[in-house]
Amino acid sequence: MLTIKNLFAGIEDKAILKGINLQVNPGEIHAIMGPNGSGKSSLASVLAGKEDYQVTDGEVLFEGKDLLELSPDERAKEGLFLAFQYPVEIPGVSNMQFLKTAVNEIRSYRNQPALTAGEFLSLIKQKQKLVELDDQFLRRSLNTGFSGGEKKKNEIFQLAMFEPKLSILDETDSGLDIDALRIIANGVNRLKNNNNSFVLITHYQRLLDYIVPDFVHVLYDGKIILTGTKDLALELEEKGYDWVKEMAHAKEPAQ
């Protein structure tokens, strides 16, 4: 599904990702954890194609295609989805208008006919139940005046609408109360199947109680320094990151 090989990227002259290697196969859930500033959200942004970042080395293959050659909208149309850490408010664009445009753009890319108004509405009805999203949110401007929880639910609702192959959830759990967290995790678990994959970027082990990962990676200083199973997340929760950092420094060749 996704193969990242020796990826280096940064903003202007500042190196942020310093040699990432990661393989995600269909049906897998990966969690990426790590202390603040380690490059987790930057990795998500680079994969989604945010133009502030320059890739200086390495390659990323998505379903065999060179991901870095694709524009952000083409990446989405190929089946990559980024659930934003801070979903953007867009006053004046209704959620409904936005969804319809995006769904039909993606369908047209896949040579599928545009949905009729009726088909679109029934698709919405079916998906909004997943995250318990109210009708009124659909009529309102995109994310405008939504609470933090509502914004995150809206991200997962979009994920459900677009049915991506690979979803990257960038700190979707941060700022959520326990009820919202449960609703979102249930949504993800019901969307998960043997053909799609998820990458969860998170600070806390809490999310992983609800969505159980196959692999947990620790990202530190722009590199994945440790990979384990869900037990690694529990260990990090208990002991913090210091021991992993020390291990990372010990590995570095003496200057």
Binding site: K50, D73, L82, F84, P87, V88, E105
Partner: peptide
């Protein structure tokens, strides 16, 4: 805002 829309598969001009 622009990037958010692009990241949802909407092409630049739209």
């Amino acid at each position: 805002q622009l990037f958010y829309l692009l990241a949802r598969g909407i092409k630049q001009e739209i």
